[in-house]
Design a protein around this nucleic acid. Structure first.
Length: 296
DNA sequence: TTGTGTTTTATTGCCTCC
DNA sequence: GGAGGCAATAAAACACAA
């Protein structure tokens, strides 16, 4: 967009600037963009419409009226001159102290002190706010990007964990299915289901007083009873008052063991066969003893 | 020296607030 | 309605590589 900004060329002799020597040479001077043409065009000066000029004198008068400190420095070759380092430092300090806002009194005071036009101070603050905002946006973007990366990493970890757990479920399910068709010899039949909590088994009492068991077989040959290191003899009554039910019938057990009169377990059928074989009465006795112990 | 990209200074038009 | 802020933009000033 052409902003319509004009550099007024002037054939008039340059003159001393206002307080501080005047940094700007927007109008006039030998370096005019428009080749020294005294009058070029009318243009809006921010708030006031700048009229078409007819002479360098009128132009200079308008410069005084509209720009205050904007003077023409005969030693300044540029049409637009940058603020000095010291001026910028002062403006920066003010920018920080005043939380990026510029009160009118402060603007006048700064302009007076730095020898520039109040309008220049306002413009500098405006541009400085724009730079600050752009930088803030950049920092915010970086922070968001970092947070996003962190979330992605967390998500990937969860997916990996989920995948691992699913694999475990699949593996355990396969093992359970294999055990359901487990051929058990008469001598090797497990006689009861015992849950060893410390090794990761879980059990829950059901509403009717039976206990459901999910067991994991680890160690020992797949089809051998040795893999059932937690199996114990359900017919042997608990011999200890230990709350942790240590004392469970099997000497193989090192932790808590539950005797289950009825159970849902992969080798329930084997245990059932043994119960039938050893007599219903004996089984009932074991259950009776178990429940007596269990509820004691 | 020159071409090119970046930074700084300034303008313009629109919007909000009082 | 005027003052001031902001986004968009222009253009000078500057930096730097070829």
């Amino acid at each position: 967009m052409d902003s319509g900004r004009l550099i007024f060329g002037s054939a008039a002799p340059s003159r001393a600037a206002g307080a501080g020597g005047g940094q700007m040479m927007l109008f006039g001077g030998s370096g005019s963009l428009l080749g020294g043409s005294p009058v070029v065009a009318g243009v809006e000066d921010g708030r006031r419409k700048r009229p078409f000029l007819t002479s360098p004198e009128e132009e200079l008068q308008l410069d005084d009226e509209m720009y205050g400190y904007y003077g023409l420095d005969e030693n300044a070759p540029e049409r637009k001159r940058r603020l000095t380092a010291e001026q910028v430092r002062a403006l920066e300090r003010s920018f920080e102290e005043e939380k990026r806002k510029l009160e009118p009194e402060r603007k006048s005071e700064l302009a007076r002190r730095l020898g520039i036009a109040p309008r220049q101070v306002a413009v500098w603050f405006q541009n400085r706010r724009a730079r600050w905002k752009a930088k803030q946006l950049e920092q915010d973007f970086d922070a968001l990007r970092a947070a996003h990366a962190e979330l992605l990493a967390g998500r990937d970890a969860l997916l990996a964990d989920n995948h691992h757990l699913r694999s475990q479920v699949t593996s355990l399910t396969e093992k359970l299915q294999a055990k359901e068709s487990w051929p058990v010899s008469e001598q090797e039949k497990p006689t009861a289901a015992v849950v060893h909590p410390k090794e990761g088994y879980s059990a829950g009492a059901t509403g009717d007083g039976t206990v459901g068991v999910l067991a994991s077989f680890s160690g020992g040959a797949k089809d051998s009873p040795e893999s059932h290191s937690y199996l114990a003899d359900a017919r042997s009554p608990p011999s200890s008052s230990d709350d942790d039910c240590a004392g469970a019938a099997s000497g193989e057990l090192s932790g808590c063991a539950f005797f289950l009169p009825e159970y849902t377990m992969l080798d329930a059928a084997a245990v059932e066969r043994e119960s039938v074989q050893q007599g219903e009465e004996e089984e009932e006795e074991a259950q009776r003893k178990y429940w007596a112990w269990f509820w004691s």
